[in-house]
Amino acid sequence: MSTPVRISNEFLTIEVSSLGAEMQSLADNNGRSYLWNGDAAFWTGRSPILFPIVGRAPEDHLVIDGQSYPMGQHGFARRSEFVLAAATETTTRHELATSGATSAVYPFDFLLAVEHRIEGRSVTVSAEVTNRGDKPMPFGLGFHSAFVWPLPDAEDRPHGVTLDNGAEPPLTRLDGGLVKPGTLPSPFRAGHLVLDHAMFDADAMIFPQGAGSGLRYGVEGGPQLRFQFENLPNLALWSKPGAPFLCVEPWHGTAAEIGGSKELADRPYTTLLASGATARFAFTVEIPETE
Rank of each mutant, 00 (worst) to 15 (best):
S2T: 07
P4D: 02
V5L: 06
V5T: 09
N9V: 07
N9H: 08
I14G: 01
S18L: 10
G20R: 03
A21Y: 03
E22H: 08
N30P: 04
Y34D: 02
L35V: 04
N37D: 06
F42E: 02
F42Y: 08
S47E: 09
L50Y: 04
F51I: 03
F51K: 01
F51R: 01
F51S: 01
I53W: 00
E59H: 09
H61K: 11
Y69D: 01
R78L: 02
R78C: 10
R79Q: 13
F82H: 02
V83T: 12
T91N: 12
H94L: 11
A97D: 14
G100E: 12
S103M: 14
S103K: 15
A104V: 06
L111I: 14
L111C: 12
L112M: 11
L112Q: 06
G120S: 07
G120F: 11
R121E: 04
S126R: 09
A127T: 04
A127Y: 00
V129Y: 08
T130L: 08
K135T: 05
K135P: 02
P136V: 03
M137S: 05
P138F: 06
L141Y: 05
G142D: 07
A146V: 04
F147A: 05
W149M: 09
E155T: 15
P158A: 13
G160F: 09
T162L: 03
D164G: 09
L174G: 02
L178Y: 01
V179C: 06
T183E: 02
T183H: 05
P187E: 07
F188R: 08
R189H: 15
R189V: 15
L195I: 03
D196E: 14
D196Q: 14
M199W: 12
M199K: 11
F200Y: 13
D201E: 14
D201G: 11
D203R: 07
I206T: 10
F207T: 12
P208Y: 10
G212D: 04
G212K: 12
G212S: 13
G212Q: 11
G214P: 06
L215K: 11
L215V: 03
L215P: 01
Y217L: 07
G218F: 03
G222H: 14
Q224C: 02
Q224P: 10
R226G: 13
F227L: 05
F227T: 09
E230V: 10
N231I: 14
N234F: 09
A236W: 10
S239L: 11
K240P: 00
G242C: 02
L246S: 01
L246I: 02
P250R: 06
H252M: 03
G253R: 01
T254K: 15
S261M: 12
K262A: 15
K262G: 13
L264S: 14
T270N: 01
T271E: 07
L272N: 15
S275Q: 13
S275R: 15
A277M: 07
A277E: 14
F281Y: 15
A282S: 12
T284L: 08
E286C: 06
I287C: 03
I287Y: 01
E289V: 13
T290I: 11
